[in-house]
Design a protein around this nucleic acid. Structure first.
Length: 114
DNA sequence: CGATTGACGTACG
DNA sequence: TCGTACGCCAATC
């Protein structure tokens, strides 16, 4: 059996995403990089796909791609739900693109490194 | 059980 | 600067 210390990649993603403060967003690559796999960004996105089965549910709407685009909005109950939630938290979204993305960007490699 | 896909990102030409 | 190829790993076909 695997060491209890080793958590599944998906589980790590879920934990990090849950730590994202309100009104802040991060990117798949940032999380992947935080997990020591900068090229495993696809896994982060895939983990989000499975996040629907996770309890509590993961705030996947706070996770966007490197360009700040809501690429995964289509996977929500409604394609606009992601943007609505973000705006509800104070995040301005324009045409699926997060405004002030570099300002509200929450980098786990920095925030969790403290 | 093998091949393809996928909510991305980086590397290379 | 832009376009294409590859890597990552799990789920789905």
């Amino acid at each position: 059996m695997k060491s209890s210390n080793e958590i599944d990649f998906f589980l790590q993603v879920y934990q990090v995403v849950r730590l994202i403060p309100k009104g802040r967003v991060t990117s798949y690559g940032a999380i992947a990089k935080y997990l020591s796999s900068p090229k495993a960004s696809r896994m982060v996105g895939y983990a989000m796909n499975a996040s629907h089965s996770q309890k509590p549910k993961v705030p996947a709407h706070r996770v966007v791609n490197r360009d700040g685009l809501l690429t995964g909005k289509h996977h929500f109950s409604s394609p606009t739900e992601m943007q609505e939630k973000l705006e509800k938290e104070g995040v301005k979204v324009k045409k699926d693109q997060v405004q002030n993305f570099d300002k509200i960007f929450w980098d786990p490699t920095i925030e969790l490194a403290l």
